[in-house]
Structure formats: C-alpha cells, structure tokens
Amino acid sequence: MPAYKKRGSQTVVFEDTPVITSWASIVGPKEGQGPWGGDFDQVLADYMFGEKTWEKAEKKMLQEAINLALNKRDLQVDDAELILAGDLLNQTVSANYAARELARPFLGLYGACSTMAETLLVGAMLVDGKFFNRLISATCSHHYAASRQYRFPTEQGTQPTPSTQWTATAAGAVVLEWAGVGPRVTSATIGQVVDLGQTDVADMGSAMAPAAAHTLKTHFEDLQRLPDYYDLIVTGDLARVGMAIAEQLFIRDGLVPRPNYSDCGVLLYDEKQDVDAGGCGCGCAAAMLCGPLLKKMLAGEINKLLLVATGALMSPTMSFQGESIPGIAHAVAIEN
C-alpha cells in the first residue's frame, strides 16, 4: 500500500488530520505598531529583548514563542516530543541555540522565509504518520540580524528601492497534536525550487512569485480544487511588488486571485510604516499565522485557509558569483 496519502505530483493529504492545538507569536515594536498589533501574544518594547546582540534576541524570541505556545495549553517544554524549527541566519543559529536551551529532540529546517510552512507540513506528516503525538513547528526572524547578514551594516547610509522589503522581527510557534481541539492541517503541497533568472538582491518578491504561482497551480491540480474552496489564500512574504506579479501569474494559470487572496508581507505593516514594498522574513508568515489568522479561524471568521509561505533562497556568496535567486513555496491547508 505505497504512498496512498499522496495526490497528484506534489501534494499530500492527511488522514488523521493533525490538530493545531495551540500557537503563539512574539513580534518587534514595528510589527506591534502595524494593523495587527493587538493580535500578537507579545509585542517587544525594543529590538534587543534584554539580550546583548540581535542574534541572541532572535533566538530568545523563538524560544519564548515556543514556551508561550506550550504554556497556553498548560504544557511544559518536556511535553513536546520534537521541535521543528529554522530561521534565516547562517547555520540557522537562532533555531539551533533555542533548541539547545529547550533540550528536546530537534530537527533544524531551512526554507528561507517559507520555513513556517515547511516545519508545519513536515510536522503534520510526522504526526499523521504516527511517529509523534505532540510536536512544535516554529520559526523566527529579526530585522537587524538579517540586515547585517544579507544587506549592509545598520548604520551605513544606503537608499532602499521601491521593491526593497523590510525583514520582520517576529517569531511564531504552533503545537501540533494527533488529537485535540483546534484548526486541522488537512493537506500540503511541497514546492519545488523555481528560478526565473531574477538577480536583483533588493527585490525578493519578483524572485519568489513564480514559485508561489507554481505551488498554487500544482496544489489545485493535484487536489482538483478551485481557488474558491478556500476562504483565504495567503502567500508568505511576496509584498506589494511580488504580490502584483503573482496575481498576474495566477491569472495566466487560470486561477482567480480575487477576492480571497492576500499576502502576509502586505498585511503585516501599514503602508505609512516606511517599509517600502512590505514585509519579509520567516517571522512574517509565522507571526501572521500564529497571530491574526489562526485567531480568525478560532472565531470562525475563516474556516478554510491556505498558507503558501514563500522563500527566496538567496545567498550573498552565490549572488556575487553571478547566480540568480531561486525561490520556493510550500502550501499548507488548514481547516476547521
């Protein structure tokens, strides 16, 4: 009875649909001032979070988000059988060091800004596969830690372009269980790496949009569904430029992007917040999911959600060597 949970070319459907029993999000000051500030569990007063460096602050955000998600259900760290996490930094240090503190079995995953969907879908498979009863999927990003690694030193006077995105300072964690009360992960489409030759390191949206379109098209083909099956389809962090391009690609693929399509990078900030095209970073999709979106599912405002977290697999080294920027997107369907 081989691979009977697989549909079409890239999609899996879950049998004993894993339940998101708890979730938590922690965001930075700027995200707290955005339109969803009240929907996050914790808004930091500053970017340091009581630590000495931005990397350590990012690690602490991830660790605290995981603790918070467990504590909401009166669980302790030891109750989590496995932690799946990743982040944007080299060697995924935030996840590794958070896992050191939490001292639980740990698998580090890297999917750039698609990591929330990646950890969620791998986690759902492990739960549905009866390997674990309860695990954590989590990710995080920090604006200044990412900035110094991928762009310029913070104090260097550089001019952003209209397509530049603002890496979110945010962390999100969900508790996945085989039984319980909450929204359920029903299916997932594992994306393939798509690269249509974009090289502008100040424009991740254009690099990721083809991957998002490819994953969405495949998802609907594999499950023979129409986009209006979902109350909301939300991409990870394409932001305004990438979202506008993605909408064109959806139309080309015969999908109808409106009115139930949006993007976390566009949603996370107010247009007046000086973030140029919008938000990006692992924390962007993670905080939107583990804040406003799951809250709306709990309230019944959204009953069928498709999260398509997108990642630009950009490496400064490869960009210097003349390579273009590959993109990836994973889709996870969450239903009440």
Binding site: P162, G197, I245, L249
Partner: peptide, 12 residues
C-alpha cells in the same frame, strides 16, 4: 517573466 516584472516593478 522579465518582461512581466519590468512592467510591474515600480521604478525609483
């Protein structure tokens, strides 16, 4: 795709 991007991407 480059043509599509050029058409949509805002210029400085």
């Amino acid at each position: 795709y480059q043509n599509l991007v050029d058409g949509i991407k805002p210029k400085p």
